[in-house]
């Protein structure tokens, strides 16, 4: 048990545990902490949730690992497979489609040389089409990590992705 707990701590960092512990009084159940925990665990783990991380989260919240895995697979912002260092979500829903999003998808493919949801050879980036991100007045748009980039053109997309480290 001790070994198990020690191993978990290397996967789910102390800082995440402390932050989540501070949120416990907000909710009448531990289960309600699952989404907040997964957001933080994913960030700490480099953008995706490995089976080991899922087990560590389950252990920490005393939930069945299968339940945590099911939640991870349900939500578009959680990833159960490796992603690039930067994660690009290009909105291609109607308002963005009407203003050229499909052309921007081609630009992303050209820039990274990989298909959707694949990691570029240098590990820098992965990109996906995403559903409406609520920025239709500044369409087309994409989200790079946590930031919105709006009123995009093919040229602007190239500039943005080339500036990523």
């Amino acid at each position: 048990m001790t070994n198990h707990a020690t191993a978990d701590h290397s996967i789910l960092p102390e800082s995440v545990r402390t932050e989540i512990d501070a949120l416990r009084p907000r909710y009448p159940t531990t289960e309600a902490l699952l989404l907040p925990t997964l957001h933080r665990a994913q960030r700490a783990a480099g953008g995706w949730l490995s089976p080991e991380t899922i087990v560590a989260v389950a252990d920490f919240l005393e939930l069945p690992p299968a339940k945590v895995a099911a939640v991870v697979s349900f939500y578009d912002m959680f990833h159960d497979h490796p992603v690039g260092r930067h994660r690009i979500r290009l909105c291609t829903n109607l308002s963005c489609q009407l203003r050229g999003a499909e052309e921007l998808l081609e630009v992303l493919g050209e820039e990274f040389g990989v298909g959707e949801d694949e990691v570029s050879a240098d590990g820098r980036c992965s990109y996906v089409q995403f559903e409406c991100l609520g920025s239709c007045d500044t369409a087309p748009m994409m989200m790079v990590d946590d930031e919105y980039h709006e009123n995009l053109t093919p040229e602007r997309v190239r500039q943005i992705v080339r500036a990523l480290d």
């Binding site: 699952l34 989404l35 907040p36 997964l38 099911a70 939640v71 349900f74 939500y75 959680f78 559903e131």
Partner: peptide, 22 residues
């Protein structure tokens, strides 16, 4: 914070999500 699912705008889907489920 939610985590990306349109159905969580439906009020009981939202409640399930708030409680830590699908």
């Amino acid at each position: 914070r939610g985590a990306g699912a349109y159905i969580c705008g439906e009020e009981t889907g939202l409640l399930e999500s708030l409680e830590g489920r699908l």
